[in-house]
Design a protein around this nucleic acid. Structure first.
Lengths: 242, 242
DNA sequence: GCCGAATCTCTGAGAACCCTCAGAACCGTC
DNA sequence: GACGGTTCTGAGGGTTCTCAGAGATTCGGC
């Protein structure tokens, strides 16, 4: 379970993540979700706060909004790096500000997510960052999720059912990833919507039904179904009984 | 995987690289990239610092900017060589200052890269230096990359697909090298841009699409495609299934 | 077996994304 | 200074993806 939910240090202590953004709603949600994933979380609302917190918290990773009220995010980054060069950074950026400002970021191993993002995407990126940082010296094992006859290689973005490759669109992929990270657990449509779709998505839960139907067509077609409807509640992904 | 990512000494200890440049942004990114490649890295911002660090760090290779704020780079080199004659040096030079100064130096087996450079180019040069110096675990054979029916001789700059030689322009070659070093892993356009293009390149990710299209014409033309588009994410190089 | 509610699926429109072409700008060479 | 090769910009066009609406279907309770 440990490898699926929270990653931890070699000694078992939880990974520390610092979240920096000036919207309290966002830091709140992020803080809660990350904590739920088994990480130790602190938040800060601006650059000065981030630097102060980092000094004593010594985070392993930082989720950092580039647009901060006081100091420029890239400047904050440099400060953080000066204190601990190893720290991983996941940037949050507005869609249009991507091209010019984030240039060079992904080269150093860091990554970014454009607002508005889905929580699953942010989590996946963060996990990837930490995984790669912890594994630099060893072989770069790719993240492999498996549930019954289903398996997903997150790096290659390849999904197979009973050995056969299945082509998925980005949203389908994201939905399946969420299901595979929570096998045997019934997930409500609202829960799925909150995790897989961007936080500013206004639409109804109807899309979830639609995409579950897409997934079924590609994954369960003709085989023993793995995606089950729990009427009035939501959906479960279960490995077929052997 | 180990031979692809980090090179190491015969005894398995990681190769030590010292990076010397007065721009913190540059040493920062370089340091992280090199560390990610499995090397042990230290940085210095000037000649005096470099000499001091080298004394105790005893690097196997040095990435050295010729233009340093305090001491002339060539002077630093002489100092370093005096302490350990074996050290490999990769010079960083401004474009116009090339001929007069570096010409003589490279005779000694060292190499240079002109600013602004792409990270892939610098990495390739550094790997080449270390390989030729006999620091790698595997034999000092020429660097040969192979993915399915594709193979690339980095020294000869020759690429073949299913035995047929393919002519590539410098940028195409660099792009393909990056893809071949990360087979089966989906690379985003931003990632590719950050690695294959020079760090001062202001352009849009659109160029990546363009060059992928060039590469496809030369490499995949008429054959089973190896370069695949992952819509909304990026590109992957995959060996055709056998 | 019937009914209402929940769920599934089909369709189409709009948007996002990607590929390619043509030409301009930029080399280095002769 | 002209030329060939390379790199990059911009625009057009085709494809794919997402999502809303509406009808069809299934499910569970009665």
């Amino acid at each position: 379970m440990d490898d699926v939910r929270g990653l931890s240090h070699a000694d078992g202590s939880p990974v520390r993540v610092l979240v920096v953004d000036d919207e309290p709603d966002l830091t709140d949600v992020l803080g809660r979700v990350l904590a739920q994933e088994g990480w130790q979380v602190r938040t800060a609302a601006d650059g000065a706060g981030a630097i102060a917190v980092a000094r004593e918290f010594r985070p392993d990773a930082v989720v950092l909004d580039i647009m901060l009220p006081d100091i420029d995010g890239l400047r904050v980054l440099r400060e953080l790096r000066a204190a601990s060069p190893e720290v991983c950074v996941l940037f949050l950026t507005a869609r249009d500000a991507v091209e010019d400002r984030v240039a060079g970021i992904t080269a150093g191993g860091d990554d970014y997510v454009t607002k508005p993002f889905s929580l699953e995407e942010l989590l996946a990126r963060l996990r990837g960052l930490l995984r790669r940082a912890g594994l630099t010296r060893r072989a770069a094992a790719s993240a492999l999720l498996t549930v019954g006859g289903l398996s997903m290689d997150e790096d290659a973005r390849e999904v197979t059912r009973d050995g056969e490759v299945v082509e998925l669109t980005p949203t389908e992929f994201e939905l399946l990833r969420f299901l595979m990270r929570n096998p045997r657990r019934v997930l409500s449509k609202e829960q799925i919507l909150d995790r897989v779709w961007s936080y500013d998505f206004g639409g109804r839960a109807h899309v979830v039904e639609l995409y579950v139907s897409y997934l079924r067509k590609k994954i369960d077609a003709g085989r023993t179904p793995m995606i089950h409807t729990v009427r009035g509640v939501g959906y479960v992904l279960k490995p077929e009984p052997r």
